[in-house]
Write a protein that binds this DNA or RNA. Structure first.
Ligand code: ZN
Ligand code: ZN
Ligand code: ZN
Ligand code: ZN
Lengths: 169, 169
DNA sequence: TACGACGTGTTATATTGTTGCACAAGCAAG
DNA sequence: CTTGCTTGTGCAACAATATAACACGTCGTA
């Protein structure tokens, strides 16, 4: 069993205030250690992402930023996102054009995402078996693996238990 | 060994004219069987995608279409792409905002893509082991799998043999 | 002080994708 | 054949996502 849940579903009973505070504290420590600056804008964007604990769109973040910082513009948020991506503090969900916080930014990795199509909850796995089987199969074809984009769309435990069905979108 | 290569890399010695003709003939048979219409526009877009045998952007297709059909506009190409996606004749590569032909449109499936970061070549796998390990791991977390987006970026056999390195982008 | 690196403000632009409505082409029932 | 329905296309505008270019300010350091 090599499954590592990097970030669990939001529902799965957790003290979310604590979860956000934790993520910000981790980010601050990590940035200090690396000698990079978690400026107010960057910190605020990271906080907005964690607050919702679900994939956030760049322009939704921009609207929120604008509410408190009149000068915010697209570059403001995209620069912050670039920084956070660079430092591994967030991941980009390609299939949604959205961004989620990473629960384990310390070691660089690519995420394996489970995305609920009903409630938008996202969990991040980092499973060595998944990585290995893909690398092996790709290797069989002579392909050298760089970055894996793995995004699984489906139903989270809560929504499944509530009777939502896959085919109903 | 459950690896099925749905669409191999373009390089791997193949008669490309034949490959395009084949794809179009398959598409025509399939559309007829299903009672849907492979109209001239749809057929032409599919052909443009197969001609290049690599991920094609919507607006690049639009430019090509416009060269021969003055009235072409964004909806023209997006409607054709929607149709082709619906019928499984092409796949969308989320990480590139691009579209590639599917080598096995008959049975619906999601693709597992190997994308060369140097030459843009794409191969499509449809590997049961990959699907299973992901479904199992997701299932362990109570997640019911719907659609998998799997896109591996790296180096194709040709580019790797030519000494291109992963880190050099 | 002077310099250089970095972060931000600002404006404009590029890229990717959608909506709405009118009209035409294909097809089936009468 | 012709009426009416469904599907496909033309067209215009727009929405959503992302980047470019340049000016300016702050801060650490030679
Ligand atoms: Zn939380
Ligand atoms: Zn859910
Ligand atoms: Zn070919
Ligand atoms: Zn290559």
């Amino acid at each position: 069993m090599s499954t590592t849940v990097v970030t669990p579903f939001k529902h799965e009973g957790h003290d979310h205030d604590h979860c956000v505070d934790d993520a910000l504290a981790r980010a601050e420590r990590q940035c200090e250690r690396r000698g990079v600056r978690l400026t107010p804008i960057r910190r605020r964007v990271l906080e907005l992402i964690w607050r919702r604990h679900e994939p956030m769109k760049a322009y939704d973040l921009l609207d929120m930023l604008r509410a408190e910082r009149r000068s915010a513009a697209p570059p403001t948020v995209y620069r912050a996102l670039d920084f956070l991506l660079e430092e591994g503090l967030i991941h980009r969900i390609e299939s949604l054009n959205a961004y989620v916080g990473c629960g384990d930014p310390d070691r660089p990795h690519v995420g394996q995402f489970l995305i609920c199509r009903h409630c938008n909850a996202v969990a991040e796995m980092n499973d060595a078996d998944v990585h290995k089987v893909l690398a092996d199969k790709a290797g069989d074809l002579g392909f050298q693996v760089g970055t894996q984009t793995i995004e699984i769309n489906g139903l989270c435990p809560i929504c499944r238990d509530q009777g939502h069905a896959l085919n109903a979108v």
